[in-house]
Design a protein around this nucleic acid. Structure first.
Length: 373
RNA sequence: GGCCCGUUCGUCUAGCGGUUAGGACACCGCCCUCUCAAGGCGGAGAUCACGGGUUCGAAUCCCGUACGGGCUACCA
């Protein structure tokens, strides 16, 4: 009430200093008598302005009047935030307080508490907040996602760390991809930027793709297996038994993934017995002139192969288009659609090897009726 | 309202008195090619928020204005 009235008048809305003059002795007796009370910091009137050298923002100055005789301990005996952090930080001998911009205005209060306590004031560094795509601050109800959510979406911790570091800090203005080791070796507060950054999902995705491509086949398979298992495409036992097979699959998908969670839809067809051909793939690919002839010829070529490895498959299929009189694209796209159900897939020849001869032929047969001579 | 902080391509940024204002994502071409990616090459995109100063010279220094943000609790 009092506060609102004061604010309406445009004046200072803080504590009215009602109890400032009570002397220590009578305060002590009243406390002893069980009177409800709080502890407030008696801000020295002669303190002058409060200045500190922020490690990222430079010198910051606040007028003392800006800080009220703030409550340190509540009526119920618990400590308030500003009191608790300073006590906690001095107790732990904290030397650098690096935190969000939203604490900048708390800093003068805390400095006063450090001084009252007779403790050394640590170095402060205030980082800007991260904003959402609309320029509004990220918060619980506004686009903010936990790191767990990013993990579940298939983002790698290394990529997220790298991206976050890039948001408000730069190594040299040129380098965008760097390891955690490089980051911890070269990070310095004086290269932290002062302005708030907008979180850019697209750049994070790109960076995540970079890290996925950099992974070794073994690492990649280790990351893939849990996803395949939880999608019901594979059991853990299968995964172990088919390790070699998975090691071949890894490199085929890694350069096509921006996020790990894109894996399952990309490879599901490899684990099923039959495949459903997408409507658009059927009309745009199978119903092209020559698709049927090409399918027949490819089927025969594959059926008569001695081995069923990528090299021999490619060698056998490469000569089909010319022989049947269609463009390579027409023939290979037809096989791709027959085998994967889609006009978009990982590379065809290695795909056929992974699928195996039996299923490859069966799918070509199943697709054949949809194809146009 | 008061007090603080911020403002360079759409986005993240380099720059710390003299640069054709550099890089990255995204975007647009071309190349590669069995699709999609990845990769390579090239392009477009910033009157450095605005207005005053200071200076031979300002994105860089100073002062205003505008806009954005934060704090203003016996919340953290």
């Amino acid at each position: 009430m009092r506060r609102e009235a004061a604010r309406a008048k445009g004046g200072f809305a803080g504590y009215d200093r009602a109890c400032r003059g009570i002397d220590l002795e009578s305060a002590a007796t009243r406390v002893a008598a069980g009177e409800p009370h709080v502890w407030r910091l008696k801000v020295p009137d002669d303190r002058g302005e409060i200045m500190f050298a922020d490690a990222v923002r430079g010198d910051v100055t606040f007028p003392v009047e800006a800080v009220d005789d703030l409550v340190l301990v509540r009526t119920d005996g618990t400590a308030t935030y500003n009191f608790a952090v300073t006590v906690d930080d001095t107790t732990m001998a904290i030397t650098h307080v690096i935190r969000g911009d939203d604490h900048l205005s708390n800093t003068p209060k805390q400095i006063l508490i450090y001084e009252a306590l007779g403790e050394v004031v640590p170095v402060f560094a205030h980082l800007s907040m991260i904003l959402g795509a609309d320029g509004k601050r990220l918060s619980k109800r506004h686009g903010a996602t936990s790191v767990e959510a990013y993990r579940d979406m298939g983002y790698l911790p290394e990529a997220v760390t790298n991206y976050l570091a890039l948001l408000g800090w730069s190594l040299d203005g040129e380098t965008t991809v760097f390891s955690r080791d490089t980051l911890s070796e070269s990070f310095s507060l004086d290269r932290v930027s002062r302005n708030p950054a907008i979180f850019d999902d697209e750049k994070l995705e790109w960076l995540n793709g970079v890290y996925i491509r950099e992974m070794s086949a073994g690492e990649l398979v280790d990351r893939m297996v849990p996803l395949l298992v939880s999608a019901g495409l594979l059991t853990s036992e299968d995964a172990a038994a088919r390790r070699e097979w998975l090691m071949k699959l890894g490199p085929l998908v890694s350069e096509r993934l921006k996020r790990l969670d894109e894996l399952v839809p990309m490879v599901a067809f490899l684990f099923s017995d039959t495949v459903e051909i997408e409507e658009s793939a059927r009309t745009k690919v199978l119903e092209k002139e020559g698709a049927g002839r090409a399918l027949d010829a490819c089927r025969d070529a594959l059926a008569s192969l001695a081995g069923f490895d990528t090299e021999s498959i490619e060698a056998a299929l490469r000569e089909v288009p010319e022989r049947v009189g269609v463009k390579p694209k027409v023939a290979f796209q037809a096989v791709r659609v027959a085998v994967s159900g889609s006009a978009v897939s990982p590379p065809l020849f290695e795909l056929l090897e992974l699928l195996g001869r039996e299923r490859s032929l069966a799918r070509i047969d199943a697709a054949r009726p949809f194809a146009v001579e």
